[in-house]
Amino acid sequence: MRQVENSALDDALVVIDNLHFAHSFGAHQVYQNLSMRVPRGKITAVMGPSGIGKTTLLRLIGAQLYPQQGSIEFAGHNVHKLNRRDLYELRKRMSMLFQSGALFTDMTVYDNIAFPLREHSQLPEEIIDTIVKMKLEAVGLRGARDLMPAELSGGMARRAALARAIALDPELILYDEPFAGQDPISMGVIVKLIKELNESLGLTSIVVTHDIAEVMTIADYVYILADKQVVGHGTPAQLKQSDDPLIHQFLHGEADGPVPFHYKASTLEDDLLGSDHA
């Protein structure tokens, strides 16, 4: 990894070190020698082309997947070395906003948000009621508490899921493509919520996305992934000034460049005329 130039990175909540990962169902290597530091109390964006394994990274941080080599530390604990019980304890301190929202379809919005509180705390229902209403107020959905997830729009479902993600006041929130498939208004609301929640609750956020314009306005630090590793990192301002062709291609959305437009294939001539046409 390039020399870290930001002093904020010294106080890292998540440290990824020399990570190697390949899915068990295929030989395709997702990460090779990946290293990252996620500064505490900041919003860190992880960007990269589709299919680069950004969601996989979040699942690795949450120890839903295990790497072949390397380590991931959260608050000083190597998440992949913990036993099952300690891992579940540690997960109470982190939270993940799934791309689909992943609300429980058989519960109302209210019960979805109350769920982690009822599972992990011994709080009386009156206090849970107050907390749920406050969390719903924070995402602007207090009036939608009695609706079922199927009755919510995509944007509302994601906001409800965000309210559930912050129910236990976690230290870290992992956002998986929070802006994908949102209309401009919902997108603006989610950008604002991520920023406000991060500041008001003192969270650390990791936002995995390829919506550059949105995330560059709120991110404190950005990592760009390509070709199985980090190809660039820095503050949004530093990256915008970068002359690296890959970073330039990604930030400006150019169709062709170091990341080729065409998926790896034989030449068109070979494919159309047969490889023995000569």
Partner: peptide, 14 residues
């Protein structure tokens, strides 16, 4: 498929 099981895991609920 709707990631509800993953979301339980990430909430620390087995």
């Amino acid at each position: 498929a709707t990631e509800q099981l993953s979301s339980l895991e990430m909430m620390g609920v087995d």
